Each structure stands twice: as structure tokens, then as C-alpha cells.
Computed example of a mutant assay.
Amino acid sequence: MKKLALLFITMGLSYAVKAQEITQTENVFLITVDGLRWQELFQGADSLFVDDTGMIEKQGSLLEAFWDPNPLKRRQMLMPFTWSTLAEQGQLYGNRAFGNQVDMRNNMLFSYPGYNEILTGVPDDEQINSNSKTNNPNITLLEHLQGLPDYKGKVLVFGSWDVFPYIVNEDRSGIPVNAGFDKAEGPNLSESERIINRLQQEIRGPWEGVRLDPFTHHYALEAIKKQAPRVVFIAYGEPDDWAHDNRYDEYLHSIKQFDGYLRELWDYIQSTPAYKDKTTMIVTTDHGRGIDKSSWTGHGTGIPRSREAWIVGIGPDSRALGEVKKEGLLYPAMIARTIFQLLGLTYPDENADKVITEILP
């Protein structure tokens, strides 16, 4: 029995070597969510931002939707799918309350460097040190796979941020990227895709270079249903942008929405013969952020705890460890080589980080 791999990852080199086939994973979904702190993932709504009446500083009540004195209940209220299905059948790393750490390796601690690290397995502070729209000189895990006969034309990328075509280097890799305010294109658009195209034109979010996550999610889901790709990278963005705007209420709502999108993706995988029991899903974030009222809106070198991240994995080759409470240290840079090994391949870049052994059989 094989399972599809849902991973937040990028792969390097286009000459991967076939390794001994001992895994059940045939497909990978790599999912990222921008700037979601481990504190909300593992503890729910932060008491520093929600007072004892449940009122947020700026406006509105979060009490009924997100607040309980017990952090275990709070996290279930915020991310019910994560703390049911993923916690029961998968693995969750990064709860620093137990000394279980996940750290970014790059020292920039913002988005482009973070995504480069995840997708290549190697931090590159020398070349990737801004969020500018410059094509990535490094080869991602996605491009390595696109170069293999078994995966060519079967790798898709969707992102809310309009820089992803450059991070993935769409021009060089030949991987189709739907990001920013891109629409679904082609001669055989579904009725749903036509509707999403129209709504994206009519409903503008508050940010110039980032669209609202519902568009990214539904473009991705429609394309998955039509094309049945083997490797999918979906990058959601709202939590980071709402945090930058100091909107803790919308930050929480976007996290709960993201959790619902994970449920929808996993339910589709497990109900679709091409994916069921053949897919691994890996979820992670590109950076952490500050921990108090003066710094939680930001991240970067000047906010050291921006290094703190997390990783979630679920799939046919991964044991159901749930929330990992033992001391340890992992890096999102380890995802690239891990994905290749799950697919029975040897990662072509010898400089990439090592594998996450617990996710492998």
C-alpha cells in the first residue's frame, strides 16, 4: 500500500538517482504557511494578545471562537483538524516547551531565504538576502523532480505571494506557478475555475503583492482534481500579512482557515484512488516571529526568535508519533532530502541537510 506525500519542500538537481524502493510514498504535497508561530500551533491563542475578557486590543471579541484557559483546548479550537487527524495519525515537531526544537538555518529570517532553504535543503545568505523578484540561482527540489521522466509535467506550484515564480525560477524550471494574482489559464477551464478567476478580479485583498488565501487554495484544489499531479507545493500567506498589520484577530482567523484547507486537501487525498495511501503531506513555515506586543508583528535578524519554526508530517511511511515531546532539533532544510528519500530517490545536492529519519519507514 502506497501513500501520497504532502510535503512543504523543494528539491535540487535534475539528475536524481533511483534508490532502493522501500517506501510507499508515490506523491508529495508540500504545504507552507507564512509566518505562523509555533506558539499558536501548540498553545492556541496567545494570552498576551487576548485579555481575560477575551477582547482583542484593536476590535472584536475572540473569546467564544478562540479562548479557553487551557492551552490544549485553545489549540483544538484554533486548529481542530491538526489536533485530531494530524495529531492522531501524523507527527508534529517544534513544541519548545518540551525542548523539541525546529530552527531555520538561514540568518535572514524572512520569506525568500526561508523558502529557498526549505526547497533546496541549503541556506544561502550570500545570494538570497532580500525578498526582491529575482530568479533563484539555486535549483529547488521541485526543479530536480521536474527534470526526471517520471515527474516531468507532474509538478505544480501555487502561492499567495507574487514572488513564488522567482523563488521556483519558473522560467528555468518549466514548472507552472500560479501565484500572486495569476488566474487559471487554458482552453478547458472548469466552471469553478472561471468563477474563481472572476472573483479574484472583483475581491481585492488589502495587500499589493499577496492575494487572499482562498484563491490560492481553490486554484490548487481545482488543478489537482483535473491534472492529478504527483508533486504539489502550496504556499499560503495570510497569517504573516495580518501579523505585519498588527491584526491578531485576522491572524487567528486565517490560521483556522488554513487548518480547514489542510483538512480539505487530506480528505481529497484519502478519498481519491490515485492518492489514497500513496501520499505523504509535510507542512511547515518559512520563519517564526517576535513573542511580545512590540515584536510579534515582525521577524528578521533583529528578532532572534524568528528562527523558531515547526514541521508536521503525515503519510504511509511515517509512524503515528503525534506531538513529539522529547528533546531534539530539526531543520526545515531537512525536508528536501527527506522528500526525495520518501520517493525512493537520492537527493542530488550533497550539500543539502540530512533526512528526518522519523518520517521515513
Rank of each mutant, 00 (worst) to 15 (best):
I9R: 06
T10A: 13
M11A: 13
L13Q: 14
Y15R: 14
V17H: 07
Q20W: 11
Q20N: 08
Q24N: 13
T25Y: 10
V28R: 01
V28P: 03
T32N: 07
G35H: 08
G35F: 02
E40W: 05
L41D: 04
D46Y: 07
D52F: 09
I56P: 06
F66Y: 15
D68L: 04
P69T: 03
L72P: 02
R74Q: 06
R75G: 07
R75M: 00
R75S: 04
R75Y: 02
P80L: 08
F81R: 06
T82G: 06
W83C: 05
T85G: 00
A87M: 08
A87F: 01
E88D: 15
Y93V: 12
F98L: 10
Q101L: 10
V102M: 05
D103N: 15
N106W: 12
S111Y: 04
Y115N: 13
N116T: 12
I118N: 00
G121N: 01
P123A: 01
D125G: 13
Q127L: 10
Q127P: 03
S130C: 07
N136C: 15
N136G: 11
P137L: 06
P137Y: 06
L141Q: 12
L142H: 09
E143V: 00
L145R: 06
G147A: 14
G147D: 08
D150W: 00
Y151E: 04
K154I: 03
V157K: 02
G159V: 06
G159F: 00
G159C: 10
W161P: 07
V168Y: 04
V168P: 06
N169M: 01
E170Y: 00
E170F: 01
R172I: 00
P176L: 04
V177K: 03
V177A: 09
V177L: 05
K183M: 12
K183I: 12
E191T: 08
R194D: 07
I195F: 14
N197P: 00
L199F: 11
G209E: 08
R211S: 11
T216V: 09
H217M: 09
P229N: 02
V232R: 08
E238T: 09
E238K: 02
D240K: 03
A243I: 02
R247C: 15
D249Y: 12
E250R: 13
Y251N: 10
H253R: 15
S254K: 06
I255Q: 10
I255N: 12
K256T: 15
Q257Y: 13
Y261R: 14
L262K: 09
E264G: 02
L265N: 08
I269G: 00
S271W: 06
A274W: 12
K278L: 06
T279N: 08
M281C: 10
M281H: 03
T284G: 03
D292C: 02
K293I: 09
K293V: 03
S294M: 12
T297L: 09
T297K: 15
G300M: 02
R307P: 05
W310L: 03
I311K: 09
S318D: 03
R319V: 11
R319L: 14
L321N: 14
Y331V: 03
A333P: 04
A333I: 05
R337Q: 14
F340R: 09
Q341I: 00
L345I: 01
P348V: 12
D349P: 05
N351C: 06
V355E: 13
I356C: 11
I356Q: 03
T357C: 01
E358M: 05
L360C: 04
